[in-house]
């Protein structure tokens, strides 16, 4: 086959290239630029090689933040994915309640992130907040501003409240796309509800769940606003996740070099883990 190559096609993709250059490539390269140099302001730069990368990777502060980040992300994944699927299974598939349920489910997703943080901050305050006050009245010693355990509990609860809906909506979309004939055949074959879930619903939800896991993984790994408003990384450093730490280094201490190096490492971790998730979950697809 002799295909004619038309160079004019480049003209049509040029706008996209320009757009991507300005919103992704150029900012990213600026960060790369900072990560290999040292600067004291005044636009004076000294070459520092991989010094910042070594420093970040060996620092205990970064390692601790990374561990906290991993614990946070895997906890919310372990709660939100099964919970989201369970809620989606109980939602009606037909009838007048469908739009009601969908709107109720979508509500948390429509609230601005900093508002979510502020809401939960007030909600959980031990002296005036509904949650904090109730827990204390019930005899629990609860104070998320001073006790790390309580801070984590509140943080995870907030994220579950905010984002489980996304999993529900995705799983629900997967569920309603299953034709009735599958359920009818399963009934005739004498399948119980577990068998129906295991052999019909779960396989049909696999694609949307993969997307749900990826989205929730990336989003939770990058979470900043809600945590910043709720706990600000405290008490102490107990809820200082990677993004919080990054902002502290970059804008608090103005260490642009280490912050840039950390950004790149952060970015590569997300890229790597997303790839691992995707490959593992799609493993069986091509067989």
């Amino acid at each position: 086959m002799n295909k004619q190559i038309n160079q004019k096609a480049w003209l049509f993709v040029l706008p996209v290239f320009i757009l991507v250059a300005f919103n992704a490539l150029i900012p990213l390269m600026t960060v790369v630029n900072y990560s290999v140099q040292e600067t004291f302001g005044d636009n004076v730069f000294f070459w520092s090689g991989l010094l910042w990368f070594q420093e970040v990777l060996t620092s205990e502060r970064f390692q601790n933040a990374l561990i906290r980040q991993l614990i946070f992300t895997f906890s919310i994944l372990a709660i939100e994915i099964p919970l989201g699927v369970a809620i989606a299974l109980t939602m009606p598939r037909k009838g007048p309640w469908v739009p009601v349920c969908l709107v109720l489910m979508a509500l948390p997703l429509l609230i601005p992130w900093n508002v979510v943080g502020a809401m939960w901050n007030i909600f959980a305050l031990p002296d005036i907040g509904l949650l904090g006050y109730t827990l204390n009245a019930l005899g629990f010693d609860y104070n998320f501003t001073s006790q790390p355990g309580d801070a984590w509990f509140t943080l995870i609860l907030m994220d579950v409240w905010h984002w489980t809906s996304l999993v529900v909506l995705l799983a629900y979309a997967g569920l309603v796309s299953i034709p009735d004939a599958f359920y009818q055949a399963a009934k005739i074959d004498g399948a119980g509800s577990w068998a129906i879930f295991r052999h019909i619903q779960l396989p049909k939800m696999k694609r949307v769940l993969t997307i749900a896991v990826l989205l929730r993984f990336m989003d939770s790994f990058m979470i900043y606003t809600e945590v910043s408003v709720l706990t600000g990384g405290g008490p102490g450093n107990s809820t200082t996740l990677l993004s919080i730490d990054l902002v502290k280094i970059a804008l608090g201490q103005f260490d642009l070099g280490p912050a840039a190096a950390m950004s790149l490492i952060y970015f590569l971790i997300i890229l790597l883990l997303s790839w691992v998730f995707y490959t593992v979950m799609m493993r069986n697809e091509d067989q």
């Binding site: 034709p179 004939a181 599958f182 009818q184 055949a185 009934k187 005739i188 074959d189 004498g190 052999h199 019909i200 396989p203």
Partner: peptide, 16 residues
């Protein structure tokens, strides 16, 4: 349906 001991083949093939 499962108590009636019947079998049905649908318009669109159903396999697990």
């Amino acid at each position: 349906p499962d108590q009636r001991h019947i079998a049905q083949v649908f318009q669109f093939p159903v396999v697990y």
